[in-house]
Design a protein around this nucleic acid. Structure first.
Lengths: 217, 217
DNA sequence: AACCTCGGTGAACGCTCGTACACTGAAACG
DNA sequence: CGTTTCAGTGTACGAGCGTTCACCGAGGTT
């Protein structure tokens, strides 16, 4: 149950390495414990007990639970950015359909691998402490702006205004967030596949609609 | 600050009426207090103090905070259903554009008028106690099914399968939820109008895309 | 008038909470 | 080698928590 001394060869570790190890253990414990109920209903003492340290030792790493929450948001968005990189790499150029399918595949894989991070973001986006909420909103907005520049490179969007690009990016990110949230609740593998298939259809609708709508305008 | 005796003419009230009054005061207080941090970080004693009753009197109305939460979900969805009714009534048949614009107008008005209810749902959808989460998910799914039957009555969807209707409804409900969440964070009136305008554009994209995509299929 | 119902009271309980403070002992350093 | 640094310890505190119980007194019933 206690994690702080998981790596058995204590002797080979320098002091800063040990501290970092404890820090990681605290982050992992907080992620585990907050999976039911938000950060607000997570106590410093619970975390300390889960990690296997005395409550006051917590302060050697974070000044408060809120500060821990901000560190978790950082950690989660690092893995989200890794996903975005994978999406870009996997994005086959040949057809829209290939691009959409492979992107959704990557998304689903990441949700499965980093389930607790995604769930944490979903929870704290609206229920977390104000600064945590603000940071999450800001990061999502960054995603939207990045996606907008990606879309600008797609064929058929040459004449689009910045605002139009952003509107479409906002729609796609919003739909992706919905998909992630549905994936989090998909218990069986079959249910997951259904969610993915639907999301692909929806993405296709959006892209067809956006391109058709613009050229008809 | 205390609300239980807000209506001055105590004498004219029957006992069940008084009880209902206190119940409403508890619900209102819980909504107010939980606006920062979720239900989980809301204590029975805080609620009692806000209402102006002694902690133990809380049990005369609810067995636990969770049960109170379920009552709040019910209350919130009653007002959401009222909105859906307004959307249907306001839905001008002449063109898609009118229908979309008026629906978004109604949505924005309701978010403004029932802000705390929408914020509560947004918060507890992922951070609330399990049963609260499940109830919210179920209600949203009901919305999707209702919307699917509405869409089926639209011109151009005659040949659609049940699944296709549901996929589009799921997309629209998801986008609406995103819009509501953005409206909740729109501080100035101008920002609100921008969100509405974008949402209208996005809805237009989705409908054009869905109809175009289907007929191309 | 006598009785019963029941929403609200107030004291008391055993917890958990965040935080203050003085401490230890091994790692890092001059 | 002696000194300093500092992650983790252990105790203690006051505050807030959910829940228990016996009690009250106005409202409703007969």
């Amino acid at each position: 149950m206690t994690l702080v001394t998981t790596a058995g060869d204590d002797t080979t570790l320098t002091r800063v390495e040990r501290k970092e190890l404890t820090r990681q253990a605290i982050l992992a414990a907080a992620l585990r414990l907050s999976s039911d109920g938000s950060l607000g209903s997570l106590s410093l003492r619970q975390v300390a007990k889960e990690v296997g340290i005395v409550p006051t030792a917590f302060y050697r790493h974070f000044a408060s639970i809120e500060e821990l929450g901000l560190a978790l948001v950082d950690e989660a968005f690092v893995s989200l950015r890794a996903m975005l990189r994978d999406v870009r790499n996997a994005g086959g150029d040949p057809t829209f359909n290939d691009m959409i399918d492979s992107s959704m595949r990557v998304l689903a894989d990441h949700v499965r691998a980093q389930r607790s991070h995604f769930a944490f973001i979903a929870r704290e986006r609206f229920a977390g402490p104000p600064q945590v909420r603000a940071t999450i909103r800001h990061q999502i907005e960054l995603f939207e702006r990045e996606l907008a520049t990606d879309i600008a490179r797609l064929p058929g969007t040459d004449a689009w205004s910045t605002e139009d690009l952003y509107v479409l990016a906002n729609l796609i990110v919003g739909a992706s967030v919905s998909t992630v949230e549905e994936l989090l609740y998909a218990d069986r593998r079959a249910a997951e596949e259904l969610v993915i298939a639907r999301a692909c259809t929806q993405l296709r609708m959006m892209l067809v609609g956006a391109l058709g709508w613009r050229s008809a305008d």
